[in-house]
């Protein structure tokens, strides 16, 4: 007894033997389609070319859109644009053998500048916007500004589950507050203490009122810098990744920047830049 699949294949082969001309035409059409696909792929002979990448390599320039309204990420000073995002942009540019030319603009003009080609990439605390993905390529996050647990170094807390039966301090009406409310429904007994400011929530951990504080990463980093008795959990409870945006049609530039960013993460450069500013 033969399997139905074997029967089907046998029948197909018999049909091909009976119609050799049709089979040949079909084979040729398939070969042509594959060849067409290969030669018209982005970067291939007849495919679209990444002119921006070529220009950046010939001229050695990379135009970067930045919104300098948010220190320490980006700030406009008499000495130029400084900050975490400016440093990341400069380092990426260096790694692809270019020099970053930072263009300052308001946040709402960033996508337009990218679309019209005024800049090659945008680094300004952007989040992935599903409405833009038809033409925008987003890198992996270079910074997670989400809500993170801060606890005492002597009694570390790394996940919300560890807070069952304990108290978590949050900034009132923040994303951390919302997350804590969700967790209080999941856990048996989670007490939420609300404070007006994130620093007050972290102070509650220091004075023993709360086991941990769930606050935004920027506030946490700045506070812990001055209070080494506290520590941050390794991962955020509510992630909020900042990404770099490029035009999708600049596929080669996107590929190179993705690689440069990945290398910066692997060799610790990105972390060193973040540590420098936060």
């Amino acid at each position: 007894m033969t399997s139905p699949t074997f029967d089907t294949v046998s029948r197909a082969l018999r049909w091909l033997r009976r119609h050799p001309r049709i089979a040949l035409v079909g084979l040729n059409v398939a070969a042509l389609l594959i060849a067409y696909d290969v030669v018209t792929r982005p970067g291939a002979w007849f495919g679209p070319q990444d002119i921006t990448w070529r220009r950046s390599q010939i001229n050695g320039d990379l135009y970067v859109g930045i919104d300098p309204s948010y220190p320490p990420f980006a700030e406009w000073t008499p000495d130029g644009i400084i900050g975490l995002e400016a440093d990341i942009a400069r380092e990426i540019a260096r790694r692809i053998d270019t020099t970053a030319h930072i263009q300052i603009m308001g946040f709402d003009g960033l996508y337009s500048a990218l679309y019209t080609g005024s800049v090659d990439l945008v680094i300004a605390g952007l989040k992935v916007d599903p409405a833009q993905t038809s033409w925008v390529h987003y890198t992996q996050p270079y910074f997670d500004a989400g809500q993170v647990l801060v606890s005492s170094s002597g009694a570390p807390i790394d996940s919300m589950r560890q807070l069952d039966g304990k108290t978590v301090a949050v900034e009132i009406a923040s994303a951390g507050d919302m997350a804590a409310q969700r967790w209080s429904r999941r856990l048996g007994a989670l007490t939420i203490e609300r404070f007006m400011l994130p620093d007050e929530a972290m102070r509650a951990v220091q004075n023993g009122t709360a086991a941990a504080a769930l606050v935004d990463t920027v506030s946490a980093r700045l506070y812990i810098e001055e209070h080494p008795d506290l520590r941050m959990a390794g991962e955020t409870t509510v992630p909020d990744g900042y990404v770099i945006a490029l035009r999708k049609k600049n596929f080669r530039l996107a590929e190179e920047i993705d690689r440069a960013l990945a290398d910066m993460i692997d060799d610790g450069t990105l972390n060193a830049i973040i540590e420098r500013w936060l």
Binding site: S69, Y70, P71, F73, F107, I172, L197, V218
Partner: peptide
């Protein structure tokens, strides 16, 4: 959270 002319959510309320 990224604007220097903004306040915290609790203050806003």
């Amino acid at each position: 959270p990224r604007w220097t002319r903004a306040v915290r959510p609790g203050q806003r309320i």
